[in-house]
Simulated scan of single mutants.
Amino acid sequence: MRNQIFLVKTAVLLFMVGSVQSLNGQALHQLPIKTVQNLHAFFKWSAQKKPIISGHRGGIVKGFPENSIATFENTLRYTPAFYEIDPRLTEDSVIVLMHDETLDRTTTGHGKVGDYTWAELKTLRLKDGQGNVTDHRIPTLTEAIDWARGKTVLNLDKKDVPFSMITAIIRQHKADAFVMLTVHTAEQALYYYKDNKDRMFSAFVKTPQAMADYEKAGIPWGQMIAYIGPDIKPENQEMYRLLHAKGVMCMISAAPTYDKLGSSNERAAAYRAIIKDGASVLESDLPIDVAEALRSSTSTKQ
């Protein structure tokens, strides 16, 4: 019976998560999302749903820089995932992907992103997490959107790009089915929601009061996941209970906390504990490691 259940689960997973080819012909995992309705349904909480992995800035692996298409592709070789990425403006108002306000940590350049034109930024090369210079360059948001279509979902963090420019580029590329927006407040969500009633959000909802704010603003619960923080803590249990009752998946980000544990075994145990505690979306700098930890946990239960 257990083997039959395992085979059924495997068949369902293969049906839901297909594969596409990368730029170099390698198979990539693919999220089953073609429409905004697919997007909303994919992120709707249920007790039976498998955990979803979010690659923070795409992930951190030697040789693969954060916020790069090469990194996005590399992660999808190992696991289905969606990506939290960081849009920033150049001096000539091109939206590029860069977490920091400055170039020094992640590129061969120096100074502020906004002090350079796109033509100037194209001459730079990206560094990986260990500071090694790679052959990869800074991508534009347009390039990331074009690449992501049919493969994954992009979650745009809030940086220095005006909201009006974000809505314009999503509309221009007809990308509402696979681009979602990080919002820190109900007011921010309302701006985007008024622009398009189909918008999907990764919303900061850490307290019952924050829930009340989103409720008052009229943001549909079926169009968000809730970021509730970076830690396992007793207060999370109330948020899981309240948000699950609304069908909302809850996200913990291990990037500032458990990703920094000293050994791979410690990190794997922490990732499994996050899911066991009640989270259904796990954001990490190490999405490939998260996938392996969760697979190992599932295999142990069979």
Rank of each mutant, 00 (worst) to 15 (best):
residue 18 G to F: 07
residue 18 G to C: 07
residue 18 G to H: 03
residue 19 S to N: 07
residue 19 S to K: 10
residue 19 S to T: 13
residue 20 V to W: 00
residue 20 V to P: 00
residue 20 V to E: 05
residue 21 Q to T: 11
residue 22 S to L: 01
residue 22 S to V: 00
residue 23 L to Q: 12
residue 23 L to E: 13
residue 24 N to I: 09
residue 24 N to V: 11
residue 24 N to P: 00
residue 24 N to H: 12
residue 25 G to V: 08
residue 26 Q to P: 00
residue 26 Q to I: 00
residue 27 A to V: 00
residue 27 A to K: 11
residue 28 L to Q: 02
residue 29 H to R: 08
residue 30 Q to C: 12
residue 31 L to P: 09
residue 31 L to N: 08
residue 31 L to I: 12
residue 32 P to I: 11
residue 33 I to R: 07
residue 33 I to P: 02
residue 34 K to M: 04
residue 35 T to A: 06
residue 36 V to N: 11
residue 36 V to L: 06
residue 37 Q to F: 03
residue 38 N to P: 00
residue 38 N to T: 03
residue 38 N to E: 12
residue 39 L to G: 04
residue 39 L to I: 10
residue 39 L to Q: 09
residue 39 L to P: 05
residue 40 H to R: 11
residue 40 H to I: 10
residue 40 H to N: 13
residue 40 H to S: 13
residue 41 A to M: 03
residue 41 A to Y: 02
residue 42 F to W: 14
residue 42 F to S: 03
residue 42 F to Y: 15
residue 42 F to P: 09
residue 43 F to D: 02
residue 44 K to N: 09
residue 44 K to F: 02
residue 44 K to I: 01
residue 45 W to R: 07
residue 46 S to R: 08
residue 46 S to F: 00
residue 46 S to E: 08
residue 47 A to R: 10
residue 47 A to V: 01
